[in-house]
């Protein structure tokens, strides 16, 4: 049986080979090799470069890849546009910071940030999924804001690392944790997309009623996507708590975390694995640049950029790449044919 499946799959690929799109597919090995190269390079950066601000920038990119990808799992795969993502990030930050600064072994405190976010997701999942579309978006935004205000009222004091911790502060370690987390999140999203669970999750995004009629438990799959999404959002919060020397606890609950995740995913390409990665790199680099030259005004630039992307390139950077690629191939073929003629 398995052999037959494999034969069929190969057969399908043979058919595809005759199409121009297959030209790129036959170079499929390039993807993994390129990826391994990028990972190796990213791992070597602290050895090669001794500049703290570069390392800090790369840390931020990894943090935002995690944040964007976690939002993408819920919004891009399951189609549930949550505006309450900051709640999971904030809870993760609060849990890790509190436990770690009170003496808990960091890896445990870090893992608990993800689990605490999932616990909160369990609490709000069923009631919020009674809402759909814009109502779901507003409902989740409301929950996150209630949480932010509650935290800012009850924990108004700035949280600062103890002096000993600051003296021993190691950005390289933080960068490696961030890199490992970003890679884990990307890997988890990719694995999810290959599993049969993702079939149900994507079906829910496409058409809830048709999904039900095809045997998919709609609420169950929304919750599954929410739990995975909130787990990584919580860990991203835990990473933030590990990196910041001092911050107001409520800052981790700011809606900025939600909207950054949304911007990154839309810029890169909603519902794709590569989207949040490209989006995060683009977003952090451009923001860093704009923040220097335009200070606060740079937020407006991102607002305009967001509108332009939704209108002109609904697939984000990934979609733009796909749209331009066939054209590039057709041109290459044409020029080759002309070469043969002459």
């Amino acid at each position: 049986m398995m052999r037959r499946i494999v034969m069929r799959r190969i057969g399908m690929r043979d058919v595809a080979m005759t199409s121009p799109a297959a030209l790129t597919r036959s170079r499929a090995w390039r993807g993994p090799v390129l990826m391994a190269g990028v990972i190796a390079l990213a791992a070597l950066v602290p050895v090669l470069i001794d500049k703290q601000d570069t390392l800090n920038l790369l840390f931020l990119i990894c943090l935002h890849i995690t944040l964007g990808q976690s939002w993408n799992i819920l919004a891009g795969f399951a189609g549930q546009t949550s505006l309450g993502h900051a709640a999971f990030f904030g809870i993760g930050a609060l849990v890790t910071r509190t436990l770690w600064l009170n003496g808990m072994f960091f890896p445990v405190a870090f893992l608990l940030s993800g689990l605490a976010a999932v616990a909160f997701a369990m609490l709000i999942g069923v009631p919020t999924f009674r809402l759909r579309g814009a109502y779901f978006a507003i409902g989740t935004l409301g929950i996150a804001e209630v949480l932010r205000i509650t935290v800012s009222q009850n924990l108004p004091l700035i949280s600062t690392m103890p002096a000993a911790e600051i003296a021993a502060y190691n950005l390289t370690l933080r960068y490696y944790v961030a890199l490992a987390l970003a890679l884990t999140t990307i890997g988890a999203a990719a694995l999810l997309l290959r599993s049969s669970w993702s079939l149900g999750i994507l079906a829910v995004r496409e058409d809830e009623e048709a999904a039900q009629a095809t045997g998919v438990n709609v609420l169950g799959h929304k919750l599954l996507a929410l739990f995975i999404s909130s787990f990584f959002a919580g860990l991203a919060g835990g990473l933030f708590a590990f990196q910041q020397i001092s911050y107001y606890p409520s800052a981790a609950f700011s809606p900025v975390w939600t909207f950054d995740a949304l911007l990154i995913t839309f810029i890169g390409g909603l519902g794709t694995i590569g989207g949040p990665v490209l989006g995060a790199i683009f977003f952090i680099l451009v923001r860093q640049r704009l923040a220097v030259t335009l200070v606060e005004v740079h937020q407006i630039v991102f607002g305009i950029l967001f509108i332009l992307i939704v209108l002109v390139f609904p697939g984000g950077l990934m979609g733009a790449w796909d749209r331009l690629r066939p054209r590039a191939i057709a041109e290459a073929l044409r020029s080759r044919r002309q070469l043969h003629k002459s």
Binding site: R194, S195, S196, L199, G200, L202, A203, R205, E206, D207, A210, A211, T214, G215, V216
Partner: peptide, 24 residues
Amino acid sequence: FPQLTVLENVSIGRAYGRDSIKNR
């Protein structure tokens, strides 16, 4: 399911219907 491929559409039925198969 409009944005999914023909194969994905039908695989969903096979992965979730009666006597469903969880191996993708």
